[in-house]
């Protein structure tokens, strides 16, 4: 996992998916959170088509704030990168971050105990 500030394009495996063990109490919250984040990727892609960088920056900011609390520090790092890339209006970097986020969400394995 990289912890840079989004100035360079992330490599294909810069956010290695992992098995995450979380407390059973969090199960419903986490399921909803991950579902929302999947939706966020689609919304950010649509926002990029409209060059609505403010919306992407906000979504990145929210992801940065919430990811680690839910047990996904990689998503907080990615949120910070999205926020910065949106601020600098770097479309290519944003597309790369969207792909990384999508891949991460697809491959993450969450277990509850």
């Amino acid at each position: 996992m990289t912890s840079g500030t989004g100035q360079r394009q992330p490599g294909r495996d810069s956010l290695q998916p992992r098995v995450v063990w979380l407390h059973k109490d969090l199960e419903q919250l986490v399921i909803r959170f991950l579902r929302r984040k999947e939706g966020d990727v689609q919304r950010m892609r649509a926002a990029l088509l409209d060059e609505d960088f403010d919306s992407i920056e906000r979504a990145g900011h929210d992801l940065k704030g919430a990811g680690e609390g839910f047990g996904f520090p990689e998503l907080s790092v990615l949120g910070a990168k999205l926020e910065l890339a949106a601020r600098s209006r770097d479309k290519k970097l944003l597309e790369a971050h969207f792909a990384t986020m999508e891949r991460y969400l697809k491959r993450i394995q969450v277990r509850f105990n």
């Binding site: 919250l29 959170f33 984040k37 929210d62 704030g65 919430a66 839910f70």
Partner: peptide, 16 residues
Amino acid sequence: DDTSQSELLSHWLQLA
């Protein structure tokens, strides 16, 4: 205003 964050904070507070 972020629903996920709000739910998480509420959950933590309720547990406490």
